[in-house]
Each structure stands twice: as C-alpha cells, then as structure tokens.
Write a protein that binds this DNA or RNA. Structure first.
Length: 904
RNA sequence: GCGCGCGUAGCUCAGCGGCUAGAGCAUCGCCCUUACAAGGCGAGGGUCGCCGGUUCGAAUCCGGCCGCGCGCACCA
C-alpha cells in the first residue's frame, strides 16, 4: 500500500501497458465458439484499411464498440469483437506504387505478379500498425483471431459469392457509361463520386449549320471537346422555336458528320438556347437519350484521359483541356462561336484520386441490385434491423428504393481478381480456371466494398458451417459513421440476407463525425487533424486546438481512459466539434476515482469488509469470481441508505444508456455520480464516522459499505474507463489471481436497496447545507468558525448532525436560543442563526434585505399569475395547484425572514 | 432544386407547452492544505438565430425567413 500513500495522481502511462497485457494474456478477448448467436454478443469491427493509422473516427468508434463489448461481456454473454483489416484495393495499391516510384521503378515495369507480391510484403510490414493502436485504446477485439479480406479463406468466400450471383443473373458484363477516374485509370462506383459545387467554367454557344444550308441551330456546352462525339441535337417536342426542324439534319462543325435533330422531353426549353447537343459517349444524360433514340455512341476520350483516334487526327493524343482549347480556336476561326459566358456549376470528382470524373463508355462488370434491395428494405421497415438514430433509416430506405446497378470491376491489380475466363467468344465463370488451354482470366479486380459486404459472415468462416458462424452470426451491433451507410452497411444487409440466410446485425449505430474545434473536418492537409495517440501519450497540439484553457504546446498525456471518456462524452447522433475539455474531464474522473480509492484504502483498509463466503448475500451477483467476496453493505445511517439507493440508480441508468446507444449520457452520468454524489457528499459526510474516536462497530459497518459502493461504482464505470477501474479493482483488494474486473460481472441494480425516503431526506439536507454555506459566505463567516443556530424544520431528525458538521453549525435547543440574527430558509422550514462573533451583522442585514427582495419579487409573480382568471380557468388543475403551493411556500419563507423568532 | 438535421451562458450541450431557463467545463473571487491545487465554496455570464402565429402560458407547437452542416439530384 506504500505506493498509494505516496502517489496522489493516477498515472495512466505506468498503469495502462501492464493492464493491457493482463487482459490480452487472460484470453478474455478470445471467446470459445460455444452457445448460440442469440445468447452471445458479437460485433464485427469495421475493418480498418491495412494502410491506415488510427484516427479520431477509429478512436471514437473503437470506444463505442468496446463499451458495448465490455458491458455485454460483463453481463455474462460470450462476447466476440471480430477483428480484421481490409485490403483497401485503391489505397493500398497507391501506397505501394508510391514506394516503387521512390525506388525509380513502377508497377508497369515490374509486372502484375511481382507487384502483388510487393503489396503482400508491404502488408506484412505495416499492416499491423493500426491493430497495435487499437490495443492502446484498450479495445477488447479478438486479437487471437485476426482476419484480412485477402486471406485465402476470405477470398474463396468472395469468389463464391461472385460466381453465385453471376449464375443467378445478378452479375453481368456490359458496355456502359461509367464514372471513369483518369487518375486511377479505373472505373469507380457512383458512391465514390463526389460533386464539387461552385466550379467555374465557360459556357460556349456554338452554331451548328443546318444541312439544308438554310440557317443554323445554336447549342450551349461547357465541354466543347465532346462535340467531336456528338451524334444528335435534341430539342423539346413542344418547343415552337424548333418544332419545324425536328427530323432535319445539321452538319457537325469540325467533323462534318450529319446530326439529326431529335425531340426529347429531357430538354429544358428555358435553358440556354433550348437546343442540346447529344454526346452519348461522354455524358450520362446523353447516354440515356441516346438509348431512347438508338443513337450511335462515339468515344473521343480514352481511358488514359487523352483524345482517341476517333477524335480525328487533329485532336488525337491531346489532353482533354488541350483539345478543348483547340476545338474552341478552330470553331472561332470558322466564326461559329456565338457567345461565351462564365458558368458556375456542379462537377463530379473522384473521391479516390481527387481528379475530375471523365464519364465514358467502358466494358465493365455490373451487379443488378433491385432484387437484393427489396428484402434489405423490409428488414429495416419491420425492425429486424434497427438503425439509430431513426432518421438514418429514412436515408437508408430512400437510397435502397432508388438503387442503381453497381459497377463492381476495377482496373487495379490489388484485389480479388474477377473469376471469369475468356477464350475467343467463350466465357467461363467459376471458382477456378476452366480446363483446357487458351483461357485468359479477366484482368480486373472487384471493388473493395464487394468483399467488405461479406464481412460479418466471411470472417466467421462462411461458407463452411463453422462453430464460429453458429455462435456469432448474426452479430448484434454494427457501429459506424454515416458516410458508409450505403457503401457498406446496406450492402452487408443485402449480402447477409442472400448468402448467410439472416440479417448481419440487429442494430446499426450511426455515430458522430468529430470535427476540428473550428467546425472544419479533421484532416492532415488542413492541419486540423489530431492523432488520438497524441492525446493518450501527450503530443503536438495544432494551433486550431489552442485556446485560453488549453494554450499552445503539447497535449498532456491524458491516457486512454480520458480519451475514451472524452470521445464518448462528446459523441451524439450528429456531428460534433472536438472538445479537449471533455478529455480533461475524463482524466479528472479517473483521478477522482483513484483518490477516492486511496481515501477508502488508507482510512478503512481494504481488509475491512472482505470476508469469506459472504458473497451469496451480496446484491451484486458476485463481483469477483475468486474465492473472496465483498461483504454486503451494512447501511447504518441515512447517508448510507441514500448512497446505496443512488448507486442502484446509476447502475440501472448506465446500463440503459449503453443499451440505448446514449454514450454521452452514460459517461457524463457516471461523472456526475462520482463527483456530485459519491465524492462531494457521501465521502465528506462519513468522514466524522471514520475518526479515531468514532464508534468501532459503526466504523466497521461503514467500511463495508464504502468498499461495496466504491467497488460497484468502479465495476459500473469499467466499460467506459477500463484501465483505471481495473487498476483500482486490484487496489481495493483483488489480486490478479482472483480475476480481472474485465472478466467479472457488471453490478445489477437491486430494487430492494432503493430508498426514496432516504433520497428525499438527503436531498433536503444537501440543499440545506448549500443554503447555509451560501449564507455563511455572504456574511463573511470564517471558514472554520462554528456558528450557533436553531433548526426549525421537519424531516431532519437523521441529518441534523451531518448538516451541522458540513455547514459548521452548532445546533442548540430552541428553548436555549437567544435572539436570532438571521434566518435561512431550508426545505421544510428554516434555520435561525444566533448571534456570535463570527457573524458580520452589517453583511447579515444586507443579505437579509436581498433575500427579502427576491422573495417579494417571486411572490408578486406568483400572485399575478393566480390573479389571471384565464390562467386559473384554463390551465390544468395540477399546474394551478402547483402555483398556489409555490406561493404559499414563498410566503412562509418570507414570514420566517420577517419574524425569525416567531413560530410560523 | 428537393429532403433531413441543427442554431439555448465564453465552450460542449441538456431542457422540447407550465417551477426564478439548467449542467459540466472555462472565467473571476474567496477558502482549505485534513483522498485529490486535476480540492472546497461562491459569483458573474443568456433578447433560448430572427419575424409572425396558436395558447391562460412558447426556448419548447405551427408558418416564414436567416445561418451552419449533411444527404439526394440529369439542367447542357
């Protein structure tokens, strides 16, 4: 116990590594695959990219999932938090490409096979970083069972799903207009495209002469270079200006191709000239119009982002921008540019490479989603999958209701290569290459999200009917940020229903995105990002994070508990700004608990109240699993009954808040209990009972109660702040041999210990003490001075002595009282303060006048309200009665002030 | 453009028809050194985004506006 005496602060850096080791070595993170998924608890972690480093999102989501895992584990459920990483096709390929560039070589130079080998090497070297970082958070992921989306077994599951979907006709190959990412040189899906608003371009008006030679039609475009691929000009069928021209032909400038003027409802008559050039090869809308009118598709922009041979000799090989300039110049030379104006519009960019999307026609693999979407909508509508907050369900359902085919092929090398082989006109889809010579496999790989969609069941060994699958599928909760609700969550539901025969999880929790303090997103390039590890260990605090209370310089080493607490406390169902104060609050809580434990350990001794075999009677169904059990609490006084009652409340509330995904309330509620009830009041109240000359029987009983309350508080807080609580568990008398708190049981609230009478008595006593302290302060009574007084109020039989102690009063019998110098209203009556040297009479009378003024104002207010006939007539009776009672109370308080010696 | 959410004390938020609009943190003052100066006590600080309406009564409900965020969207 020596360390306890000397050390007044909780030191996370000393404690955390030691505790972490014990958790992992204990095997508690690695459950046996026994029992059923209904009895067990499981969460599949959103697999971080192998290229990733822990960021704030991981830290928050890790904290959330760990709270859920620990809480359920401590309720005796066999708990598995499924761990693994995602191969992250694009991100990882780019990392390795960069590495190759630094070595002066390239992916193309070394070839596909060598490149993939390089990626595996890279993964072996760096892929574990983020997992180690999760450990630092105290995350009880199953580290003994780590998966990777490119593992052999996982890959087999991916291919099996592909082959089945192909055989069932959901997957097909087609030439279609796709979102082409010229930076990546790959198609990407609609979800990987982001619209950038406010892009400034030039809108050109260009004249297309009529083939008849009799006039022209002027069209408007921001992309003159695509003119080379035009195959029609469209007008609205009801547009009188062009009605007569429908069916006529135009000569496409620079190219000379004849274009028919077609009529289509899509065209807006009030935009531009009302005539629209149609380029099915390079515009999504034109592509649709082209389909409706069976127009030819011409591609003048290639996958390399350069103009193709089809663009004509003069333009082939130019970049898009160069081609645009040349086309405009050429049109200008022919006098066909009719106008140019600045034009601000929305332009699609690739989320992946940041480059402007080039829509073009390409041969890709697609997955038809409509049939899979129906059941995925149903399970949310009928509550088999609950999305929290509910507003997110609407987004989910809306998106699935209008789902479009998913482009699943990517022109990358790192990923699951599409299991399709070609030989001449033959196509074969299967798990392995077909027999015979001359087959070549499709070079493309699958979208990474295709494999992620199988995560909850492929990690458990699907398609084998493994014991793991039996025990842990469906999982219970999926926790994620809203940005991948469609990209990932919806697809998991569809795939889970289709292939694993059940929903992948019953609850989806959509958590906050944490922004920088100035409201911008956290990002390295903006300088607004911070590394969670810098908060844990102490590291650089970027300028935007500095303020008066947290000046520039490094973060203090807050420790994991503080970071977890802080992130949970700031979380909500919508985006939040990072608040270092919340982290500091977590640190304060850890320290407070540590010092409360010191107090109890040093004053009571941890041996007190620990007896053999007493556990059966403990309200908590067995906190430790070891041989020793906590003695049951032995309440002797009203404050004992009060704190036990409040303890039951915080236990129940914390459970309910965790189950209801209200992590901020769970965390802050614990803080409030520990500070506002346990430490500020209970520990202060019982101090006199621990003194040398106190009754030894009471002292022993109090010791048992104190230990009990502290232990249950610590156990209740454990899922949120696991390190400090595990450490304190030890300090309170449980050695490692007796079991980890993390493997112990969450206290269960005992209704029998609820005591409303004690709660009322104590809340009155606390109010009284506060009122008396406020008064003392206002009349400048010295802190230590004991002031004589008379307690004239009901309901304080049990608390009077405690009030006297904490408010430094000496209550005398009413008969012995001298003339009072002040009267302080307290619930149910008042306290008369008698004359003494300690009281500044001038200040007391000032104070009295002020109190009277306040009361009079409130009385007037209440009277006015009750004088209002309409209020009395129309407001509900209980509201009116409440107002009358309040008035009466205020009048009584005023009367007591006016007539301190009187009896009423 | 359509849809969703948000705007309450310096900060983060609670309250979502009725007590003098609250809490934590921060600030300021006083105090203690007796588990914890990461302690105790207290104080200051708010036209509850703006305008209208409903109601005996609105931060709370309704409508409109303004601002911020997000999602969806095919206007060349």
């Amino acid at each position: 116990m020596g360390a306890l005496e000397d050390r007044t602060r909780f030191e996370p850096s000393e404690v955390e590594p030691r505790i972490l080791r014990r958790w992992i070595d204990s095997g508690l993170v690695h459950p046996k695959p026994t029992g059923t998924a209904a009895e067990n608890f499981s969460i599949a972690v959103p697999p971080p990219n192998v290229t990733g480093a822990l960021h704030m999102g991981h830290a928050l989501n890790g904290s959330i999932q760990d709270v859920l895992s620990r809480s359920n584990r401590m309720r005796g459920r066999n708990t598995k938090w499924i761990l693994g990483t995602d191969h992250a096709g694009i991100a990882t390929q780019r990392q390795v490409e960069k590495q190759l560039e630094r070595r002066g070589t390239s992916r193309e130079a070394i070839g596909r096979e060598a490149f993939v080998e390089q990626v595996w090497e890279w993964r072996d070297l760096y892929g574990g970083t983020i997992i180690d970082q999760f450990k630092r958070l105290g995350a009880t992921l199953d580290y003994d069972d780590e998966r990777f989306t490119m593992d052999e077994r996982y890959a087999e599951a991916v291919l099996k799903v592909f082959v089945e979907l192909y055989e069932q006709g959901h997957i097909y190959r087609d030439n279609y207009l796709v979102n082409w990412d010229p930076g990546l040189r790959s198609a990407i899906s609609d979800l990987e495209v982001e619209e950038h608003e406010g892009v400034v371009d030039t809108l050109y008006s260009i004249a297309y002469p009529l083939a008849s030679g009799d006039g022209e039609v002027v069209i408007a475009t921001v992309r003159p270079e695509t003119l080379l691929a035009d195959t029609a000009v469209a007008v609205h069928p009801a547009d009188d200006r062009y009605h007569a021209l429908v069916g006529e032909e135009l000569i496409l400038p620079l190219v000379g191709r004849r274009l028919t003027i077609i009529a289509d409802d899509y065209v807006k008559t009030d935009f531009g000239t009302g005539a629209l050039k149609i380029t099915p090869g390079h515009d999504p809308n034109d592509f649709e119009i082209g389909n409706r009118h069976a127009l030819e598709r011409i591609s003048v922009i290639g996958e390399d982002g350069l103009m193709t041979a089809q663009a004509g000799e003069r333009y082939a090989g130019l970049t898009v921008m160069a081609a645009r300039e040349r086309v405009v110049a050429d049109l200008e030379a022919q006098g066909l540019i009719r106008a140019r104006e600045e034009y601000v519009h929305t332009v699609p960019y690739s989320q992946r490479s940041g480059e402007r999307i080039e829509p073009l026609i390409s041969l890709q693999w697609f997955m038809r989603m409509d049939e899979l979407a129906g059941p995925a909508i149903d399970v949310v509508r009928d509550g088999r999958v609950r999305i929290h907050p509910p507003s997110q369900s609407k987004r989910y359902v809306d998106w699935l209701s209008e789902i479009r085919p998913w482009c699943v092929s990517r022109q990358l090398w790192w990923g699951h290569q599409i299991p399709v082989w070609y030989r001449g006109s033959e196509t074969y889809c299967g798990l392995t290459a077909p027999d015979g010579d001359g087959w070549t496999q499709d070079p493309d790989v699958l979208d990474t999200w295709f494999s992620s969609a199988l995560w909850p069941f492929a990690t458990l060994g699907w398609p084998e009917k493994t014991p793991e699958l039996q025990a842990f599928y469906p999982t219970d909760v999926l926790s994620t940020a809203r940005d991948i609700l469609f990209l990932w969550v919806a697809r998991m539901v569809m795939m889970g229903l289709r292939f694993a025969g059940d929903v992948p999880f019953s609850d989806v929790y959509v958590h906050s995105i944490i922004q920088a303090p100035d409201g911008r997103r956290m990002s390295k390039s903006l300088g607004t990002g911070i590394d969670p590890l810098d908060l844990i260990d102490g590291g650089p605090r970027p300028p935007v994070y500095s303020k008066a209370s947290h000046p520039a310089g490094d973060f203090p080493a807050y420790g994991s508990d503080a970071v977890r607490f802080g992130l949970l406390a700031m979380s909500s169902t919508q985006d939040v700004r990072f608040s270092e104060e919340k982290i500091a609050q977590g640190q304060a809580l850890a320290n407070k608990l540590y010092n409360a434990t010191r107090f109890v350990a040093l004053r009571v001794g941890v041996g007190v109240g620990v007896g053999v075999g007493a556990g059966a009677g403990a309200p908590n169904g067995g906190v430790p699993r070891g041989a020793r059990h906590a003695a049951p609490p032995q309440p002797r006084t009203v404050e004992d009954r009060w704190i036990l009652s409040r303890l039951q409340a915080i236990e129940a509330e914390t459970r309910a808040r965790i189950d209801g995904f209200d992590f901020a309330k769970a965390a802050l509620g614990l803080y409030d209990f520990v500070y506002g009830e346990l430490c500020d009041w209970y520990l202060e109240l019982v101090k006199p009972r621990l003194s040398e000359d106190a009754d030894p029987d009471d002292r022993a009983a109090l010791g048992a109660t104190l230990l009990h309350v502290l232990r249950e508080t610590i156990a209740t807080a454990h899922p949120i702040i696991p390190f400090v609580t595990e450490e304190l568990w030890d300090l309170l008398g449980y050695t490692p041999a007796e079991g980890l708190l993390a493997a112990g049981r969450l206290p269960e609230p005992d209704e029998a210990l609820r005591d409303p009478a004690a709660e009322e008595a104590m809340s009155h006593a606390i109010e009284a003490i506060k009122a008396l302290r406020t008064w003392r302060d206002s009349v400048h009574v010295k802190a230590g001075a004991v002031v004589p007084g008379v307690l004239r109020a009901d309901g304080y039989d049990e608390t009077a002595a405690r009030i006297a102690g904490l408010a430094r009063l000496e209550f005398v019998a009413e008969e012995a009282a001298t003339e009072p110098v002040a009267t302080i209203a307290i619930p149910g009556g008042a306290v008369d303060v008698l004359a003494s040297d300690a009281v500044d009479l001038g200040a007391a009378s000032e104070r009295l006048a002020k109190a009277r003024e306040t009361l009079e104002r409130e009385i007037a207010r209440a009277q006015a309200k009750l004088a209002n006939e309409r209020f009395v007539a129309k407001a509900p009776a209980d509201v009116v009665d409440g107002e009358r009672a309040k008035l009466e109370r205020l009048r009584a308080e005023l009367a007591a002030l006016e007539d301190p010696a009187g009896d009423g």
